[in-house]
């Protein structure tokens, strides 16, 4: 059983829930940007939540199936067709041998997750099938897909078609976003006024937005508290002695354009960080398009933990609905 890639879309990669454990060597966790959507897609087709699927950004791929399979598409709203016939999102549908899966223009959100019964069966690298293109690691030959690739698919216990995620449990990306941020790390480096501006201003997603990080522009420049730069930090006030970077941390090189590090984050570097997007909101970032208006909302650790519990509750409901 295989899937032939007839067209790769813009950047389509094999992803699962990532490879934790190697960040101390500069190898990021990777995996689906929108974890909830990938879990849902897998559950719909009867896979384990951590099976490998495809993640496509902005433009869907064109895929020909060599055998019958059950498929589900979740995440962004991108009209899906099998041999030209429309298929619903967040729903398991059948693709027969010889049929072709295609996508129309993206309506909202940024990334779709495509799960196939049996999962994409590329070899595991460091415990995961996720693609880390910079390191040419994992996925299909360590790189995004290209026309002519043939993806192996695992054995499946064909679940029934037509199952869907209840409307209330589909997370629909909106036109704007609020990202909850726990201030910290090097937050003390900017003035009190800049701290207020950071949360008061409306930011917009910049064009440089990918799996490594999302850049934002449009807010006021941050001013720094005066200091003599520490030895080894570099001369710019936004520089620090190169440190680790948390996933979701927000660095602001030169104080101008915040960058949120995401699943394929660089593991460290020499730019100060104002804080970190809470874990419950990480999935949302992967569904933001360039120019999306975004606000950063200041929260406490207790807020972050409460949001985490809400997310877990939703996931439990999803599992129950698809059990």
């Amino acid at each position: 059983m295989a899937i032939k890639v007839l067209h790769h879309g813009l950047a389509t990669t094999v992803q699962d829930l990532g490879r934790p454990g190697y960040f101390h060597l500069g190898i990021p966790v990777g995996g689906a940007m929108d974890r909830y959507a990938m879990r849902a897609a897998n559950l719909l087709v009867g896979n384990d939540e951590g099976a490998a699927g495809l993640e496509a950004v902005f433009i869907g791929p064109k895929l020909e199936f060599t055998e019958d399979a059950l498929v589900a598409v979740t995440g962004a709203d991108m009209p899906t067709k099998v041999d030209g016939v429309a298929q619903p999102g967040w729903t398991a549908f059948k693709v027969k041998a010889g049929q072709t899966l295609t996508f129309d223009f993206l309506k909202s959100g940024a990334r779709i997750c495509i799960a196939v019964s049996g999962g994409i069966d590329v070899p595991e690298a460091l415990g995961s099938r996720s693609t880390y293109p910079i390191g040419a690691l994992g996925g299909y030959k360590g790189r995004p897909l290209t026309a002519g690739d043939e993806l192996p698919v695992g054995k499946s216990n064909l679940a029934s078609e037509g199952r869907n995620v209840p409307e209330a449990l589909r997370r629909r990306p909106g036109p704007s976003a609020e990202l909850r941020v726990l201030p910290g790390l090097y937050w003390h480096r900017v003035t009190e006024e800049s701290q207020q501006n950071f949360f008061a201003d409306e930011w917009k997603v910049a064009n440089e937005a990918d799996r490594m990080g999302y850049r934002f522009k449009g807010g006021r420049k941050l001013d720094f508290v005066d200091r003599e730069q520490p030895f080894g930090a570099g001369s710019d006030p936004s520089n620090i002695v190169d440190s680790c970077y948390p996933y979701g941390s927000i660095q602001v090189p030169g104080g101008t354009e915040p960058i949120i590090l995401h699943r394929d984050a660089v593991s460290g570097g020499g730019y100060f960080m104002v804080g970190t997007v809470i874990s419950a909101d990480m999935d949302l970032i992967g569904q933001l398009q360039p120019h999306s208006p975004t606000r950063f909302v200041k929260v406490t650790m207790e807020d972050a933990l409460a949001a985490r519990r809400v997310r877990q509750l939703n996931l439990a409901r999803l599992r129950e609905a698809l059990a």
Binding site: L182, G184, L185, Y247, G248, S279, L305
Partner: peptide, 8 residues
Amino acid sequence: FGGDEHLF
């Protein structure tokens, strides 16, 4: 803290 998952 770096969010709810990292201690720095």
